[in-house]
Amino acid sequence: MTESATKHETILTVKDLTTSFKINNKFYKAISDIDMKIKRDEILAIVGESGCGKSTLVNSIMGLQDPSETKITGEIDFEGQDLTKISEADYNKIRGAKIGMIFQDPLSALNPLKRIEDQIEEVLICHTDMSKQERRARVLELLDQVGIVDPKRTAHQFPHQLSGGMRQRIVIAIAIACKPDFIIADEPTTALDVTIQAQILDLLKDIQKENHSSIILITHDLGVVAETADYVHVMYAGKIVEKGNVDQVFNNPQHPYTRSLLKSIPQVDSESDELYVIEGSVPSLQNMPATGDAFAPRIPWILASDHEENPSMHKLGHGHEVRCTCYQDFYFKEESDA
């Protein structure tokens, strides 16, 4: 396969995905209308505030939800298999081997009673036929790869003996142990200090380049997105509201939500005392409107006729897409006052 062919190879395709949760015997849609593609060699960031469904989305891809409480419809196409339809046994052949996952809180993500080497080795036991010696050697190699200074010593330690940054490196070692093509990182640096965050993000980027793999990066931190991602999906109330490359989304944001969010970041050069506040609040799962634009109540000065009844994605060219027609007529409230 040539370099350019691999470059455009699609690793994962999600089509019309809806995930609903059972609350008091009724199903509520946590995410819906999700269409996305991730290609080899790219980092796709999914950004949104808490409750927007970004974690639900990756848990659905990974099959981590309790099937008795969840209903998933649509397609998740991974290497020719639809993950929404395969058996648990087949899923186990993919998880850990072909898709690696990194979690938010590295302390609770590791079993407190098991040594580091056992926790990394477990994934090799599941997916390879390496001998015990080979596995142990691979564990040390992985620890070295994720930047652990003294792999031998760390291998014998327990999670509570390591710092937060080191624990996250262990979790990353587990995720990349079987050299997966695809890594899901769910808020991988939220629990870490800012200097450690920078190191972990650099490490992820280096690993992604080295293995020519793809990463879905879930985060609420726009700075992390801007520094790390190639492509960005912005989520609001269970739907993707804007898609584009990182330059399009940050330098030419279209959806009112993206624009408002970027505007509410404390700015370096802005002398203004007031930060921009988005009115209202995110609708809860039970109160999610069935039709209409979920963001409309938070920009009440925009006419109802500017919104769509069933907001759909609009292509703006060069892969930039935005949901609902309201972006065309959107302005900030104080702009009209001025």
């Binding site: 800012v194 200097t195 920078a198 726009l222 700075g223 992390v224 801007a226 520094e227 330098n251």
Partner: peptide, 8 residues
């Protein structure tokens, strides 16, 4: 170490 939103 602060991540910035200046993509360029």
């Amino acid at each position: 170490a602060i991540p910035s939103t200046r993509v360029a």
